[in-house]
């Protein structure tokens, strides 16, 4: 096992992903709305020098959003890889399946009930994600999905639009919430400070740990239910685990940044393209690629409409949707 896992392809994949991440992190620190602060200033600040303006911009603004972007990317990349593998469906993405929408709706409800975005309770987002996830996977019944990947997506789309409507109802009756939420529902990692996302981090790490534990059983499951059972795996348990892990990951990501779609679609597909379909490898690479995608989108969000910022959710949709179309256009859907 160990030898296959650490194949040459895998090593190259991991190194490439790490290299990309390093470049993107640099970009995220050096590029921003204030274009007077570039790499030179960042370097100075990181060495403890630099003027107040640069220090504030780099340390209080760009460093936090880079860190948050990494967390969000890890969570969504891992959740996407897990979900796609468990559902054996390249289109199984937390956003498309309504998991993010469930989480977002729960947050909207909690804000309407008096909570504030500033002290958002992570568990609310997680409960919402769990509900969304259980409906999505309940619909899918997992095993029947190899035949019809679109069905799950259609179910997710219907679920998402229903949840969006529920949010609309709340926003209609509660304008204070509407005003507070209308920026949040698009998804963004700007302006969140590290202390406010702290509660979400342990949850995210727990979700990631569960995901890594599940990689092996999922790989066995990919061989088919019977084979997996023969190998001593318990498919039902594995699926429940996937559900919980995805809910923890997506819930914490949503609590940090609001609903951001398409990360969980694009990243795992890229990961599989690099290291092949084995979930054990794809998961690792997806975890490393996720932050790159999110940060790249975030860097774009800062510069496309200076001096304002375009929300990250819009950029990720602009990148992700064409990729979705490309996947569907390819003559037959790649089966997992």
């Amino acid at each position: 096992m160990a030898t296959t896992f650490l194949s040459r392809r895998m090593l190259i994949g991991v190194l490439a992903a790490l290299g990309l991440l390093a470049i993107v992190v640099l970009l995220s620190l050096g590029v921003g709305s204030d274009n007077t602060i570039g790499f030179a200033q960042v370097l100075a600040v990181l060495q403890g020098a630099g003027d107040d303006q640069s220090r504030m911009t780099v340390l209080d603004l760009r460093v936090p959003r880079t860190i948050i972007g990494c967390f969000v990317g890890v969570a969504l990349g891992a959740a996407g890889a897990l979900l796609q593998s468990a559902a054996r469906n390249p289109l199984a993405e937390p956003g498309l399946l309504g998991v993010s929408a469930g989480s977002a709706t729960a947050v909207v409800i909690s804000i309407a009930l008096g909570a504030s975005l500033d002290n958002l309770q992570v568990w609310i987002a997680i409960v919402g994600a769990l509900l969304g996830c259980s409906v999505a996977l309940g619909v899918a019944r997992m095993s029947g999905l190899g035949d019809d990947p679109i069905r799950l997506v259609l179910a997710g789309a219907a679920l998402s639009s229903m949840l969006a409507a529920v949010s609309s109802v709340i926003l209609l009756t509660d304008q204070r919430t509407a005003d507070e939420v209308r920026f949040w529902t698009i998804g963004a990692i700007a302006g969140r400070n590290l202390s406010s996302i702290q509660p979400a981090i342990p949850v995210l790490l727990l979700g990631l740990a569960v995901a890594l534990l599940l990689a092996r059983p999922l790989a066995a499951l990919a061989l088919g239910e019977k084979v997996a059972s023969g190998l001593g795996q318990r498919p039902k348990l594995v699926r429940t685990g996937v559900m919980i892990s995805v809910a923890l990951l997506v819930g914490s990501a949503t609590a940090m940044a609001g609903p951001i779609g398409f990360v969980g679609l694009v990243v795992p597909i890229a990961a599989r393209a690099i290291v092949g379909p084995d979930i054990r490898r794809a998961l690792i690479v997806a975890v490393l690629l996720g932050p790159s995608f999110v940060l790249l989108a975030d860097v774009l969000s800062r510069i496309v409409a200076r001096p304002t910022e375009t929300p990250l959710g819009v950029i990720s949709a602009l990148i992700g949707a064409p990729i979705l179309v490309l996947i569907v256009r390819s003559q037959r859907l790649p089966a997992l």
């Binding site: 289109l91 956003g95 498309l96 679109i150 997506v153 259609l154 789309a157 209308r182 529902t185 698009i186 779609g261 398409f262 375009t310 929300p311 959710g313 819009v314 949709a317 602009l318 992700g320 949707a321 064409p322 979705l324 179309v325 569907v328 256009r329």
Partner: peptide
């Protein structure tokens, strides 16, 4: 057609929100 519409629709949704 359905999935392409879904993807393009999500771009429009994002634009509306924006």
């Amino acid at each position: 057609f359905l999935i392409t519409g879904l993807g393009l629709g999500s771009i429009c949704g994002a634009a509306t929100n924006l």
